[in-house]
């Protein structure tokens, strides 16, 4: 029999409370999202699903503007993913592989971009985008999301690349590969799962982002911005279904990226 000390018990109690804090709302939203309409309006609401139905979800998806905004959200998220991976992965590789002057400053600078409240940036940004003629388009939102996602993309990919020993690339280079070839044949296959996780992370970040999207668009809203703008005048089933719909990608993402988040700050080469 293992002896449990009181501090261990407290630790577990706290962990359980913390988990419940997050899980209970998600659970309730999920239950409501898959209940028929009349159950949702009941009070008090049932804690366990009594009848499972797709009625509520279908109602949400068929609401006007939802499908369009879902499509836009996907386009924005894919654009964000593409641009931030194209820019962020090489930066992450450089951070992981090379010791260059100002490297640590660069690291801090990357994170500090997140220190600027987007609220302060939003008005100048909206003005800039209006001047550039990019206002109210998926491109403006994608650019903004890329700026928001890049710090994480860079840090996550750098930790992913740091997990592949330099020796492996060097061995490949002595065996006939160029530097690029060594990356292609050795580092890329080994980092693919990690890079995929970083990509999914970027996607989810863009998918969930509401503030910038709401400010930079008027008619061409992404899903969260759309849901936000119609939330006040929409019925309960719409809210539950929308909430659940927005949650799903984030949940999937968590399963993928978990182990990469733990060493976000990466190991440093030599």
């Amino acid at each position: 029999m293992r002896r449990w000390s009181w501090s261990r018990v407290w630790l577990h109690v706290l962990a359980v409370l913390l988990a419940l804090w997050v899980i209970v709302p998600i659970y309730l939203i999920a239950v409501a999202a898959f209940s028929p309409r009349d159950v949702i309006y009941k009070y008090p609401k049932p804690l366990f699903p009594t009848q499972v139905s797709l009625e509520t979800m279908l109602f949400f998806i068929r609401s006007s503007g939802v499908l369009d905004s879902v499509r836009r959200s996907i386009v924005v998220a894919l654009l964000t993913l593409a641009v931030s991976m194209a820019v962020g992965a090489p930066a992450g590789y450089a951070l992981a592989r090379y010791v260059f002057p100002g490297r640590d400053t660069f690291r801090i600078a990357i994170v500090s971009t997140r220190a600027f409240p987007i609220v302060i940036l939003s008005i100048p940004l909206a003005v800039s985008f209006i001047n550039l003629g990019l206002y109210d388009s998926v491109i403006s939102v994608a650019l903004m999301h890329t700026a928001l996602a890049l710090p994480f993309t860079i840090l996550v990919t750098s930790s992913v690349f740091a997990s592949v020993p330099v020796d492996l690339e060097e061995a490949a280079m002595t065996l006939g590969c160029s530097r690029l070839g060594a990356f292609w044949r050795i580092s890329l296959p080994l980092t693919l799962p990690g890079l995929a996780a970083a990509a999914i992370f970027t996607f989810v970040l863009s998918w969930n982002e509401v503030f910038a999207a709401a400010i930079l668009t008027l008619r061409n809203r992404t899903l969260p911005a759309h849901v936000l703008s119609v939330l006040n005048e929409s019925p309960l089933p719409f809210r539950f279904a929308g909430g659940f719909f927005l949650l799903v990608p984030a949940l999937i993402f968590m399963l993928f990226i978990r182990r990469y988040l733990f060493n976000l700050w990466g190991r440093v080469v030599r």
């Binding site: 020796d167 492996l168 061995a171 050795i186």
Partner: peptide
């Protein structure tokens, strides 16, 4: 570059491709 030198190398860490 290494690939044009006609060498082969064994590393301390073995560097076997996993």
């Amino acid at each position: 570059p290494p690939r044009r030198r006609g060498i082969a190398m064994v590393f301390q860490s073995y560097a076997v491709f996993p």
